[in-house]
């Protein structure tokens, strides 16, 4: 489902350029859940942005759901994100002027896969049924993160990418949100790539990959220590 080969990315900097990803390769099968761990500044978010078509790699090939991301123009990458990828951000990134119901349905309506029944189920499972007419600013952080997860899953994307989805939440809320996300992902057969610092979160995934100095390495206990 996700196939990245020989990815490099360097950010221009002063006095010299900073290499972030150096010939990195990663393959994730359909329905697999993968945790991407690494120290702060190791390039986890950059890799997620490249895989999600939000940012372009300097070199290498990225294929998502069979589409070569590098070959797509801006509109093509937008279509890929719209149709094939659900994104969950650390800062939630809800649309503040739309209520919870409209936020939940937004991406599904955008790609024409809106299903009122599925949206209702998601709202119910995520505990949002009573909050549909509220606005994001009226919700707690945990509630906002559940809306963001619901928005990503409502459009039934084949791939879900989440960047520190529980990073802003307390331990209990984080555990609840993660449980919900994992159960929904597994029920729908969605491929999940999650960036996290948390060893506990990473432990719940099918596989863990660790990013260090721009390259992927085998998971080790150091992951937990790093967090």
């Amino acid at each position: 489902m996700i196939d990245a080969r020989d990815i490099t990315k360097t950010y221009p900097g002063t006095p010299r350029a900073v290499p972030v990803l150096q010939g990195l390769s990663l393959a994730v099968s359909g329905g697999e859940t993968v945790a991407l761990t690494g120290e702060s500044g190791s390039g986890k978010s950059t890799l997620l942005h490249i895989l999600g078509g939000l940012e372009a790699a300097d070199t290498g090939i990225v294929t998502i759901a069979g589409q070569d991301v590098g070959a797509l123009d801006e509109a093509g990458r937008a279509a890929l994100r719209r149709d094939s990828i659900g994104l969950v951000f650390q800062q939630f990134n809800l649309i503040p002027s739309l209520d919870v119901g409209a936020n939940l349905a937004f991406q599904a309506r955008l790609n024409g896969r809106y299903d009122a029944g599925w949206a209702g189920t998601l709202a119910e499972r995520l505990g949002l049924s009573d909050l549909l007419s509220r606005y994001p600013e009226e919700l707690s952080g945990g509630q906002q993160q559940r809306v963001a997860i619901g928005r990503a899953l409502a459009s039934r994307p084949p791939v879900l990418m989440a960047d520190e989805p529980t990073g802003n939440l307390d331990e209990d809320s984080a555990a609840r949100v993660l449980d919900l996300m994992l159960s929904l992902v597994r029920e729908t057969g969605t491929t999940l790539l999650i960036v996290t610092h948390s060893a506990a979160v990473a432990a719940q995934m099918d596989r863990r990959v660790h990013l260090s100095r721009g390259r992927l390495s085998a998971p080790s206990d150091a992951v937990g220590a790093a967090s």
Binding site: L54, E74, A78, R81, N93, Q107
Partner: peptide
């Protein structure tokens, strides 16, 4: 700005 960024991240082309 945040809304525009979110819209684009969700797949709305800039155009």
């Amino acid at each position: 700005r945040a809304t525009v960024r979110t819209l684009r991240a969700l797949g709305v082309p800039l155009r």
